[in-house]
Each structure stands twice: as structure tokens, then as C-alpha cells.
Amino acid sequence: MTRKRPRLVRAVRIAKALLSTQYAYMLEYRAEIALWAISGVLPLIMLGVWQGSGAATRAGLNPQQLSHYFVAAFVVRQFSVVWLIHVFEEDTLTGKLSPYLLQPLQPLWRYFCAHLAEQATRIPFVGFLLIGLATINPDLLWRPSAGELLWGIAALWSAFILRFLLQTLAAMLCFWSERAAALDRLLLIPYLFLSGLVAPLDTFPASIKRIALATPFPAMVDFPARLLSGLPVDLGGGLLSLLIWCLILAPLCWWGWHQGVRRYGAMGA
């Protein structure tokens, strides 16, 4: 206990220092982050597409449920964006990773805190976009219950961690390949179609839905979006799926890191 407490205090202090510094750094790029936030409107575009067709109604979703789902998916997407592989690829190729490796802190924590700081910077822009939506059509927004909000935020944050772990695993390829970010572009295809970002999972044919549910992607968008929008959802099953995928990916990331870092050439440094 006497050893654990100082370690915990130190971890909290590191987290505070990293988060506040990264937040200050992200604020320097606020205009860019505002543009990223605007560029994440795919679910709102998909809402427009789906509203015009009767497919959602045939899948058991009324127009209001459909619009709430896509607005929730928009929020989930905004706060689960992961760009680790792109900076990690650059840092590995140019040797910028070297100073991080020379400090007694696992470098991935820096990237993780940078993502959290970026999310905090994004909050006002997402708020403005939602206010804009409400101005255009007040029916697009709803007031979730305390439970929906609580579980929704927990699922959203877990979805972010899952996406971060998945991309961390892909990023470990940077130690072997100079263009590992290409893998992320490949992963974007199943992420877009199987996560529920372009269509609610309920609208999928049963066989496709079964395949989708066997992957980690629905837990990244469909599950938290359903929770936030108040659609019927298997809470235990969704949380369990998030947990299982995180438990699968975390050791793989650890293994990938330890194998990969041995190959690091610290080029450019």
C-alpha cells in the first residue's frame, strides 16, 4: 500500500501534466480541429439518405428513432476519432519517437493523452454543430434520460478505447513497414459498413448482421449510439463485447510493441 500510493500519485500527476499540456497544444490548432469536427458529418448525410427511403421503417425504426440514431452516431464518431497511426508513422520514420523512448513513461500514454485533449478541444465545436441542427430542425435533438446518458457516455468512451487499441495494433506495423497507415485506410472500410455509421445494424440482412456482430466494429458506433438515442439495446451484451475485444487487443498491442521496438532504428535521429 505504501508503495502503491506514491505510484498512483505520480501517475495522476503525469496524467494532469500531459493532459493540460496537450490541451494547450491542441488549442493552438483549434481552427483545424473545428474543420475536423465539421468533416465528421457523414452520419448526418446518411440520415438524409435514409430518411428518403422506406428501408428504416421496414427494419422497425420510425423516422424520429432513425434521426436520433444518426445524430447519436454523429456524436459517437466525433468523440471516438483516432489518428494515432498517422502521427506514430511519422514519429517512427523521422525519429521523433526517440525522446519519448528515453523517458520512463510508455510513449503510447502521450498519444492517448493527446487524443483526450483533442476530444476536449472538440467539445465546443460539436456543441455548436448540435445547436445548429436544433435550429434547423428541433425534432433532431432529444433529451436522453440520466441512465441513457450515463451508459451512453461509458459506452462511447469504451468505444474510443477499443478504437485506440485497434489502431495501436495497426500502428505497431510502423516498426516493420514505412507505410503502415495504409492498413488503417483498409480498416476504414469494415469500420464504415459494419459499425453502423452508414446504416443502423437493424437494417442489415440477418446473415450480414451476424457477421458484423462477430467483429469489434458495431461496439464502436452502433452500441453507444443506440444507448444515447434510447433505442432498445442489449446493454450487458454490448458492454461484454467491448470488454472482450479490449481484452483481446490489449495484450496483442503489448506484444506488438515489445517485438516492434526492438526493430526501431531511430532513423533521422
Binding site: R10, R13, I14, A17, T21, Y25, E28, Y29, P99, Q103
Partner: peptide, 23 residues
């Protein structure tokens, strides 16, 4: 030819992080 300081922030911000990392 390499730097660890964060380019857009004052050195003291990076130094504060270092202080926390090294306890």
C-alpha cells in the same frame, strides 16, 4: 539535430511534463 520540446508551446510546458514523468 533533434528536439523534444513541443514546437508551439513555451519550453516550460515541456519541462513541466518532464518534471512529472521523472517524479
Amino acid at each position: 539535430n533533434k528536439q523534444q520540446l513541443i514546437w508551439d508551446l513555451p519550453p516550460l510546458d515541456s519541462i513541466r511534463v518532464n518534471a512529472a514523468v521523472y517524479g
